[in-house]
Simulated scan of single mutants.
Amino acid sequence: MQLFAKALQGVTLCDEAERLFHGRGGMYDGCEHLCLDWFPPVLLLTSFKSIEQDEVDFLTECITQRWRQLKGERKLNLVFQHRCGGQTQTHLLQGEVPEPHYVDENGAQFQVHLLRGQNHGLFLDMRAGRAWVKQHSKQRKVLNLFAYTCGFSVMALQGGADEVVNIDMSKGALSIGKQNHLLNGFGHGARFLGHDIFKSWGKLTKFGPYDLIVADPPSNQRGSFVATKDYARLLKRLPSLLAEQGDLLLCLNAPELDIAFLKQQVEEQSPSLMFIEQLANPEVYFDKDPNKALKVLRYQHKPT
């Protein structure tokens, strides 16, 4: 816990959403269960194991002290999320959370919801991936698989994409995605398909081929996607949707599955894809074991 307090002394607060403390990277002994995120104007503290109330009080005091150093007497808004044993409990410890709550990232705005459920509407660890898509989408047709709230789509359109097709089983997430597009001035240019990807190849093929495909699936979500068996199914079909020399971003956020797992899946199922590079994660997400961190691999369709 003392390492958390010490690390907070180097924390600053900018105008954009970002992770401030990443204990899960294993760089702070005894703090591997802790993360601190900044969704302006709210701080979100998360514990991934059971902790006692006196520990919560200690962490709250550390955060409060640093807040006063940075913001003086401005009101602190602090949310605590406790994840343990498959259960998620979220509590507002201090202040309030705006409703609706919008945050900025790289020139775009996104709606988030810190008090509802485990996911908040914007995965901060994918910031570099979204930035890459923004930089490489000009005049391209983009397919956003497992689109969630469509952060990649917004960035693609900001980067000048001709069209984006978003598909996700969760119509609720896609509804927020539509709002994110309107929030950023995109009333057209994107499609939203609330379907099971594995049952929608015909529809996806109809709208293709695509110059850029992003696949950012959940790693272990029953009824949707389980990486150990479903990545192979996905990779068998993706090359047929990709334009010649088109780009493919494959994402995997499963600590138990290493980079070699994903590369082997591609080699076995999609030999027409050529590995280009691995995108670096934001610096705050540094992990002493890179295989446990978020993996974002870029492939390209080989010319025939």
Rank of each mutant, 00 (worst) to 15 (best):
F4D: 04
Q9K: 15
A17C: 14
R19N: 12
L20T: 01
G23R: 00
G26A: 11
E32S: 13
H33N: 11
L36P: 05
S47I: 02
F48T: 10
D54G: 02
E55R: 09
I63F: 05
W67P: 02
W67E: 03
Q69P: 10
K71Y: 07
G72N: 10
G72S: 10
G72R: 08
L76P: 03
V79Y: 00
V79N: 01
F80D: 02
F80N: 03
H82A: 15
R83V: 06
R83Y: 02
C84E: 14
Q87N: 13
Q89N: 14
Q89H: 14
T90F: 04
L93T: 12
L93H: 05
Q94M: 11
P100M: 07
P100L: 08
D104Q: 13
F110V: 11
F110I: 11
V112P: 00
H113V: 09
H113S: 14
R116F: 05
N119E: 13
H120I: 09
M126C: 07
A128D: 14
R130M: 04
A131W: 04
H136P: 06
K138Q: 14
R140I: 05
V142W: 00
C150D: 04
F152N: 00
S153W: 00
S153N: 00
A156I: 06
Q158P: 01
G160L: 13
A161I: 10
E163V: 07
V165P: 00
D168G: 09
S170C: 03
G172W: 01
G172N: 13
A173I: 08
L174D: 00
G177L: 01
K178I: 09
H181K: 02
L182Q: 14
F186P: 06
G187H: 12
H188A: 13
H188W: 10
R191M: 05
G194H: 02
G194E: 08
W201D: 03
G202R: 01
T205A: 14
K206P: 10
L212F: 15
P218G: 10
S219N: 01
N220A: 11
Q221H: 13
Q221W: 04
G223M: 07
G223Q: 13
S224M: 14
K229R: 10
K229H: 08
K229S: 11
D230P: 04
A232V: 09
R233V: 11
L235Y: 01
L235F: 02
L241N: 08
L242N: 12
Q245D: 13
L250Y: 05
E256R: 04
K263L: 09
Q264Y: 09
V266C: 12
P271S: 02
I276M: 11
Y285C: 09
Y285L: 07
D287P: 06
A293P: 08
L297A: 07
Q300G: 02
H301F: 11
K302E: 11
P303A: 12
T304F: 11
